[in-house]
Nucleic acid binder design. Structure first.
Lengths: 220, 220
DNA sequence: TTGATAAACGGAACAATGTTCCGTATCTGG
DNA sequence: CCAGATACGGAACATTGTTCCGTTTATCAA
């Protein structure tokens, strides 16, 4: 097993919430057993490691590198992700999930307008960070075919809710389509990314401009 | 080890490669010798083989395949093209050369309007055939950085001449820019290529439309 | 607690590919 | 025709993605 787990603290990350999703009521199903704890831990470690390695080396980073970073053998990696592409897909989805999941959190922690602008900034970071992955999407590999739909089906509702709340509170106009905005900001952020002359500053300034535009004509 | 890469010797379509034409006729260029005949032959065979293999298998075809098709060993291939990318570049340039070189030939063999339309059709074939290579150009490999300029610097003058002659003969309008036309037809041909429902027919119909447009308003 | 066993693990081994090396064969100039 | 520069072929090496399988371990019931 993964003897190489000196840093066991990771376990404390309360991954428990996502457990017990299936068939808890039935008794002693010989055919199905609860997933092993180390397997779950490793799947998480692999996705996390892949995210880091992709960011450092690029999406073309060797699989061995990722396995090493995760403290796991390649065999383990391949049981979970039968293909390199599957790993890329996994990382992409996980990042989409994480970004989309912040929308409701921000909505409860801040007033609607503030929540909206904070999330849009977060979304910008997602776009810039995942530029490498995004280019992989257009590489012709059919494994990535489903990702655009996944992207939209997660982000559009999240932003729609934020927009509606902001509009209702009089902090944004009503006539803005969430998907239009996602695309516009996506284009904005994907050109002139973090490697620009002044980091992400330029992108953020443009984003602020757009956010002000959202407020324009709003009753005060 | 083989480091320096003299690589291209210009367009090289000229037949004779005698060294004596260089500068003054002083004796004893001890340092340079005429290239061996087999070397020249193999370079040609490699480019030709690569063209075929790229067309059949794709630009990602194994190098060994190309060497085999050319009837040479990989060592020979790598002496001429130190990198896989160099081979791709070589094929691309050679195809550009071949296509551009037909312009003057057509100009002498046909009346200006006919020459123009024939060459545009030929250009269409180039675009469709090289779709695979074109996508490789946008792969981030710096070896391909010079190709767009090469493309333009060969095609634009060729087409400019054809256009001017046709306009002078009253067989085309005067207000059409060669580069604009190259781009327009390039876009036309790159979508819906030869794999479409009716082969290249659709593309050719659109091309004819455009050629008619070139004639429109021309004095007769 | 303990033991049987399904599940998971690690990493060696395999296959495909780009690239390098070098002993041998061939061409060229004199 | 000879000597030496030049080029050749393909085995060998390096880097990946992927598979296999003997070993280890978490789980569960007794």
């Amino acid at each position: 097993m993964a003897k190489e787990t000196p840093t066991e603290k990771k376990v404390a990350t309360a991954t428990s919430t996502t457990r017990s999703t299936n068939t808890t009521a039935t008794k002693a199903p010989r055919t199905t057993r609860a997933p092993r704890a180390d397997a779950l831990r490793n799947e998480d470690a692999l996705l996390e490691a892949a995210k880091v390695v992709f960011a450092n080396i690029g999406v073309d980073a060797p699989v061995r590198e990722i396995a090493a970073q995760a403290g796991v053998g390649v065999g383990t990696l391949y049981r979970r992700f039968p293909t390199r592409s599957d790993l890329v897909v996994g990382v992409f989805k996980r990042e989409v999930d994480a970004c989309a999941a912040e929308a409701p959190k921000l909505a409860t922690a801040h007033p609607p307008g503030e929540a909206l602008s904070r999330w849009l900034k977060r979304y910008c970071q997602f776009i810039v960070t995942k530029k490498g992955l995004a280019s992989a999407l257009h590489s012709g590999d059919p494994a990535f075919d489903a990702l655009p739909a996944y992207f939209r089906s997660n982000f559009e509702p999240a932003l729609t809710d934020l927009l509606a709340a902001a509009a209702k509170a009089g902090e944004a106009r009503h006539d803005v389509d969430a998907y239009d905005l996602l695309r516009a900001i996506g284009n904005l952020a994907s050109t002139g990314g973090k490697d620009g002359p002044d980091g992400m500053e330029h992108t953020y300034r443009m984003l602020d401009l757009m956010i002000d535009g959202l407020r324009f004509g709003t009753p005060r």
